[in-house]
């Protein structure tokens, strides 16, 4: 990196071509690596590994392509603080997922007593609120997006 400061360019810090190319090839290598690793049976570790590789790639891009390596401390802190707030957002919201169920059945209105623990069988959806659209192809429809949706209103 010494050659990146070879000239006096005032506040410009040109990055050497060699460095740019080597970063690029590392990134391509890591991309291939993550695809290859994905095919291996790694169990639940695969998401961790994939995220670690992604973070490594992101760091390379940030440090050298985005010149963070030479950037003012304040700007670096400002940018990285966003990650802190994103993690707050994700963290607190995920803490609250325990009470969430997306597959509860409606109360059987004519049967007693109510289930204390709701059924968790997959594929059971609440059909009393609004029905799922019928799962059939619309004959001769040009576009699936053109299906009439009664709830669309401006």
């Amino acid at each position: 990196m010494t050659d990146s400061h070879d000239h006096d360019h005032g506040f410009a810090h040109p990055v050497s071509v060699k460095l740019l190319l080597s970063v690029f090839f590392s990134l391509v290598f890591l991309t291939v690596l993550t695809i290859v690793l994905n095919d291996l049976p790694l169990g639940s570790a695969d998401i961790v590994i994939a995220m670690m590789i992604a973070t490594l790639k992101a760091s390379l891009v940030m440090l050298f392509f985005m010149h963070m390596f030479w950037e003012k401390g304040f700007n670096v802190v400002a940018f990285l603080s966003s990650l802190f707030f994103v993690s707050l957002f994700i963290g607190f919201t995920l803490m609250d997922t325990g009470s969430y169920r997306d597959d509860i059945d409606s109360f059987p209105e004519d049967k007693q007593p109510a289930p204390r623990v709701p059924r968790t069988a997959p594929g059971v959806s609440s059909n009393d609120v609004r029905p799922m659209p019928p799962a059939t192809l619309v004959e001769g429809s040009i576009s699936p997006l053109a299906k009439p949706n009664p709830h669309v209103r401006l």
């Binding site: 400002a78 966003s82 990650l83 994103v86 957002f89 994700i90 919201t93 995920l94 997922t97 969430y100």
Partner: peptide, 29 residues
């Protein structure tokens, strides 16, 4: 300008963060 664009990137990151939260939540479930 430089600080401005970095701060703008911060807003972009947070803009996308909502989708990442939704993703994480539904993948978790």
């Amino acid at each position: 300008g430089k600080l401005g664009i970095w701060v703008f990137l911060v807003t972009e990151v947070l803009f996308f963060s909502g989708l990442f939260v939704a993703y994480t939540l539904y993948r978790y479930h």
